[in-house]
Every structure is written in structure tokens, then in C-alpha cells.
Write a protein that binds this DNA or RNA. Structure first.
Lengths: 232, 232
DNA sequence: GCTAAATTCAAACGAGTGTTTGAATCATAT
DNA sequence: ATATGATTCAAACACTCGTTTGAATTTAGC
């Protein structure tokens, strides 16, 4: 009972993953479903099919495991965001970018990440969404540190793109966009939306490919609101 | 040590609150700061200055206490939302309502609730925000049940107000608005925004009175996006 | 094949969890 | 004043938590 004979069936093709990776995968799933406090080390090691002590051996503590779960994905995500922004700014050759391009590069990249199952896919997206409202101190601190550089680059790009809009206004709307996106992600199991808000099943059962344009339209609408100086 | 001599100094004026109410107040604060799993019965009863067994005596279990913490506020909030919608529809005399009025009645009422400290004020708002992404089964079920009637009324009002917009589109945007609002609330301690996203302190240190129009503008912009048939 | 490091394992640690118990205290009504 | 029910209390319940231990096992280098 302590650890099942063979949990985590090979699922993926190239799966002779070593202990570290299996723990990270199991933890990612369980954190998404039950939260951090709601997930015990025994649940994680049980699902990963490894010994209870393995987490402390490989990561040191539960807290460090949580950080590593995020680092594994966020590093890639934020590098990608910076790469795309670099590319856009290089093309623009000093001129301000269209805000819609900036928004798509930041939020669209997050959503499109879900298509790559190898990168954690939807599970990690839901985990991000639920974590943005986590009050736990060390998690927020870790997030702020991990995001700081990227957010600042995008903020500057928006400032430049919307020179007539007060900076505080831009930062707040960026904040709202983040909220809408996090929540959209966290709540976008079709089934959960159906049961929670009474959407008809056939309306709700859409893939992420339909969510992305819907969300993007909403975000840009919010960003543009009462800003006539906005690009068409 | 088990319970401090006199915890919870009278703080408020009229505070000879009975045990039940003190437990609810303490639980509301602690749940907001530490989450449900991160808050123990001993923390609650310690902060409330009551015996450990009092929670089980008055509420039955921790789970029922959580539900009561929400019910105490949500009942008032949702009744208020229904009352306002009734009023608006009575004035309109059968004609569709302006979407901005509907949005303000639903989301504005939530934000404005923060001004009444007697209703839990900002603490409860932050708790709501953090709870919207909670995966915990019984909490989501409880929320869906508590909200079902209100959400349906507002959905119908929006359908009527925007007859040319596909219903699915409206429901999704309602969903996004909820996300932006929840997150705005949960993250809108000035200090946390400052540290997390690097806003200048003088830009971030604004009261809720400035947040409300900002958020409202964003929400309406998102709702209006690419919908030319929208009211001016 | 032998050595030494890396990894896994079963078992236990102390501390904290939500809940229950039964006696003590309080309030209220007769 | 007394009886009755509501409430509070200290103590203990059985259980789970994250972490540590030290021996067993596997892996890698020579």
C-alpha cells in the first residue's frame, strides 16, 4: 500500500524517466488538483512510484520541490517571451510596437504553451492560474523574482507603445489582463464551467484553440477601453 | 499557551460579540492569509480567544465552518445583486438594460462591498478572490449552488441586452470578467502589487475608490470588444 | 573484482492535524 | 433555590504531516 507495485504506467513513449523527473511530474499534477498544502509527500511519492524519502534526498524539502516544479516550466516560458519580444523589437527597428502584438506575445505564449504536452501542457497552466492568488509568502516571492525581468521588459514595451496613456493606467490594466488570463486558465475545464456557471455543454466543450482568440479579444478590449489613441 | 489570556482586543466598538461570531471573524481573516488547509482549528480558536472545541460545538466541523464563513457574506451580497437587478429591470419596463448597468450591478456591488467594514470589507473580498481558483471539491460545489440563481439572472439580462451576440460569447466574457475581478481583488494590497510587479509606490497606493472605475472600464472594454452593436 | 560514491529503502521521529469526551461552569426558567 | 439545558473547558483520541536515520542496494570508476 505504501507504494503501489507499478504506478505511473509508461504513458509517454520515452519514459524510463529517472526518479527526479517522475517526482516533478507527479507533484505538478497533484499540486494542480489539491493545492500545495493539500498535497502530501506520501501522495507525491506514491503517485510517482518512488520511496517516500526520495523527495528529501533529491530536492531537500517540500518547499524546494514546489520551487523546482515551477522553475522547470517558467524558465522556458519566460525565455520564450523574451525571445519573441526581442524579435518583434528588432523587426520594428526602434518604432513602438502594436499593443496587440505585445499582449499576444505575453499572454498568447502562455496559452499556446498548453499545446505542448511535453511542457506540462494544461496541467501547468491550471497550476499557474491557481497559484497567482496563493497567499503563501515564499511562493509569491519566488514568482516575483522569476518574473521580474520579463514583466519589466513588457511594461516598458507597453509604455512606449502607448505614450499618451498614464503609466499607472497601463500597469493596472496589465494586472487585470493577468487576472482574466489566470482565471480563464484555471477554470477552463469544460466540465467545471458547465457545472459552475450553467453553460450548455455543447457551448463549453471547446478546445484551447477557441479559448485563445476569445480571451485575446477580451484582453485587447479591456486594454483599449476609453483609449482613443489606440491603434486600429 | 493553549488559549492566550485575552486575545482579540476589543478593536471594534460594539464588541461583546458571542463565540460564534468571534470564530467566524477570526476564521475569515486567517483563511484569507493562509488558505483553508493552511489554517488550523487551533489557530482559529487561539485568535478568537475561545476553546478549541468551540468550533466543533458551534459548527460541527471545519468544513461546515468554512461554508458558514462564506454564507454569512454571500447571502447578503447575492440578495443585494438580485435587488438591484430587480430595480433596474423595473425601471426599464421590459426594455433591455444597458450592459454597463448590468456589469456594474454585478461586479461593482462586489467591489463596493469592501467599503462596508461591517460586511467583512477587504478581507472577505480577498478571500473570495483566492477561493475562485480553489480546486477543493466541496467549496466549488458550495459556490456554484450559492451563486447559481444570481448568475443565471444576470446571464439572462446580458442575453437580452446583447441579442445579436452569441450566448456562448457572452458567457465566456462574463467568465473573463469574473477572473479579472477576482484577481484584481486578491492582489490589490498596494504593497503586494508593488513588490510583485514593480509599480512605483505612489502609483500603487490608491484606495479601492480608484480601483473600481479602473476595473469597470477594463471590464466594459473587454465585454464590448469587437461588438459594434454595443451601446455607446 | 573491488572500491567508493550515489541512490533507494523500511522504519521511526516529533510535531501538528481535526475531532471527541466527560466533567465543570454558566444561563435561564420554574 | 433548584432543576434543566446550553456552553465552555482541559485532556486525550487516532491519525497524518514533513523529515531523518542508518542499513541495504545500485551504479560508476579503476
Amino acid at each position: 500500500m505504501t507504494q503501489a507495485a507499478q504506478s505511473l504506467p509508461p504513458a509517454d513513449a520515452k519514459n524510463s524517466a529517472d526518479t527526479r523527473e517522475r517526482i516533478l511530474d507527479a507533484a505538478e499534477h497533484l499540486f494542480t488538483e489539491n493545492g500545495f498544502e493539500g498535497t502530501s509527500m506520501r501522495m507525491i511519492t506514491g503517485a510517482a512510484g518512488v520511496n517516500l524519502a526520495a523527495v528529501n534526498y533529491h530536492f531537500g524539502s517540500k518547499e524546494q520541490l514546489i520551487q523546482e516544479v515551477f522553475r522547470r516550466r517558467l524558465t522556458w516560458l519566460n525565455q520564450e517571451r523574451l525571445r519573441i519580444l526581442d524579435e518583434l523589437e528588432a523587426e520594428a527597428a526602434g518604432k513602438p510596437l502594436k499593443p496587440s502584438l505585445i499582449v499576444d506575445a505575453f499572454f498568447g505564449t502562455l496559452i499556446r504553451m498548453a499545446e505542448h504536452e511535453a511542457l506540462g501542457g494544461r496541467t501547468f497552466l491550471r497550476l499557474i492560474g491557481r497559484t497567482m492568488t496563493e497567499p503563501s509568502g515564499f511562493i509569491r516571492a519566488f514568482f516575483a523574482e522569476e518574473y521580474a525581468g520579463v514583466v519589466d521588459r513588457y511594461k516598458q514595451a507597453l509604455f512606449k507603445a502607448l505614450p499618451d496613456v498614464p503609466k499607472a493606467e497601463i500597469v493596472w490594466r496589465f494586472h487585470f489582463m493577468l487576472g482574466a488570463t489566470s482565471y480563464a486558465i484555471a477554470g477552463t475545464d469544460a466540465l467545471r464551467i458547465v457545472t459552475d456557471w450553467g453553460i450548455e455543454p455543447q457551448e463549453a466543450d471547446e478546445g484551447l484553440d477557441k479559448l485563445l482568440p476569445r480571451l485575446m479579444s477580451f484582453l485587447l478590449g479591456g486594454l483599449r477601453a476609453q483609449l482613443p489613441q489606440f491603434e486600429s
